[in-house]
Simulated assay, not measured.
Amino acid sequence: MTEESIDAIQVIEATIRNCQKSQLKFVAGSAQFTLLKNRLYALEVGRDLLNGHTDIIVEPLVEAQAPIESIIHKTEKALSNQKKHHP
């Protein structure tokens, strides 16, 4: 496993912990709760892939794609906004 993979896994695990904490603030069944639930699932699939789990079937990968794309988009947007306001 490369150092880059290890770093990525650590970031994903930290994000999972943060999402789990945030999820406690929302009522089960609410849009925010469901969004976090889907993101948690996608992050866990990504972490498993980085950890070398090769027994993951296609369906979880397909289900994880949209939440991962959403996380990437949200992160890119936050980074671009931060660059505009901070030198």
Rank of each mutant, 00 (worst) to 15 (best):
A64H: 03
V62E: 15
L35F: 02
Q82R: 11
E13F: 02
T15Y: 00
L43Y: 01
P67R: 02
K37G: 11
I9Q: 13
Q20V: 04
I57L: 11
E63I: 08
Q20H: 04
L43I: 11
G46C: 13
K77T: 10
L61N: 07
V45P: 00
E76A: 10
N51A: 08
V58W: 06
V27D: 09
F26S: 07
I6N: 03
Q23T: 03
S5E: 11
L50P: 00
V62K: 13
D48S: 13
V58R: 09
F26K: 08
A8F: 01
V58A: 13
M1T: 03
K37Y: 09
V45Q: 07
R17Q: 11
Q10W: 05
H85R: 15
A14V: 04
Q82I: 13
E59D: 15
G46D: 04
S22Y: 04
I9S: 04
I57Q: 14
L43S: 01
I71M: 09
F33N: 09
D55Y: 06
A28F: 00
S5Y: 05
N51T: 05
I71F: 03
G52F: 06
E3W: 05
T34Q: 13
I56M: 12
H73V: 07
E4S: 09
L43T: 00
C19V: 08
D48V: 00
A64E: 02
M1S: 14
M1D: 12
I6F: 08
I71A: 01
K77D: 07
E13P: 00
V45I: 15
N81Q: 13
K84A: 13
N51D: 12
